[in-house]
Amino acid sequence: MKKDSKKKERFVAARRNSDGTLKEFKSSTGKVYDYEQALEAVEQGLIENALPFTGRDGARHIRGMNDGDESTNLKNLKEF
């Protein structure tokens, strides 16, 4: 199977820290990623509904697709 024909995962649920920031993600295959693992997967193009970006603090972060669809906003992911 060619690598580019492999189906990408999606983030379908999340866990948050006590301050509300995202700390873990669950993918459509059931895999659980901590934030660093999730960021690495997003940067490698393995996750279809998230993008990496550099924040004002200079650190790398994850954001949802800016496509106008509220369901793709990572803040709207269900808890797991």
Rank of each mutant, 00 (worst) to 15 (best):
G45S: 08
G55W: 07
Y33R: 13
Q37I: 11
K8M: 07
E43R: 15
T72C: 00
V32T: 14
S28N: 07
E48Y: 10
I47P: 01
K3S: 13
E48Q: 15
A59G: 09
H61M: 05
R60G: 06
Y33K: 12
F25P: 08
G68N: 03
P52V: 12
D67M: 02
K8W: 02
L51K: 13
G45P: 04
D57I: 12
N49I: 14
E40D: 14
G64Y: 12
R56A: 14
N66S: 07
G64S: 10
D67S: 03
S71F: 01
A14W: 00
K78W: 03
L39H: 07
R10E: 02
S71C: 00
K31T: 11
V42I: 05
S71Y: 00
A41N: 10
E70Q: 01
A59R: 14
D69K: 04
N17K: 08
L46I: 06
K23A: 11
E24T: 08
H61P: 03
A41H: 14
E79W: 05
V32R: 10
I47M: 11
T29P: 00
E43W: 01
K7F: 01
K6C: 01
E79T: 06
K6P: 00
D4E: 09
S18K: 13
S27M: 11
A59P: 02
P52I: 11
G45I: 14
G30H: 11
D19H: 04
E24Q: 09
N73G: 01
A50T: 13
V12R: 00
T54N: 08
T21K: 08
D4I: 10
E70H: 01
E40G: 13
K26W: 06
M65Q: 08
R63T: 02
E36T: 12
R16H: 02
S18W: 13
E9D: 03
K6Y: 06
L51E: 15
A38K: 15
S5E: 08
N17E: 07
E36D: 13
F53H: 15
E48I: 14
E24A: 08
K6I: 04
L77N: 04
Q44M: 14
S27R: 10
I62P: 05
N73K: 07
G68A: 04
K23Q: 07
T72W: 00
G20I: 07
A14R: 04
P52M: 07
K31D: 03
N49E: 12
L77I: 06
A14V: 07
K26F: 05
R16E: 02
Y33S: 11
L46R: 15
I62C: 05
L22W: 06
L39A: 06
Q37M: 13
E36R: 13
A41M: 15
R56E: 12
L46N: 15
F80K: 03
L22R: 06
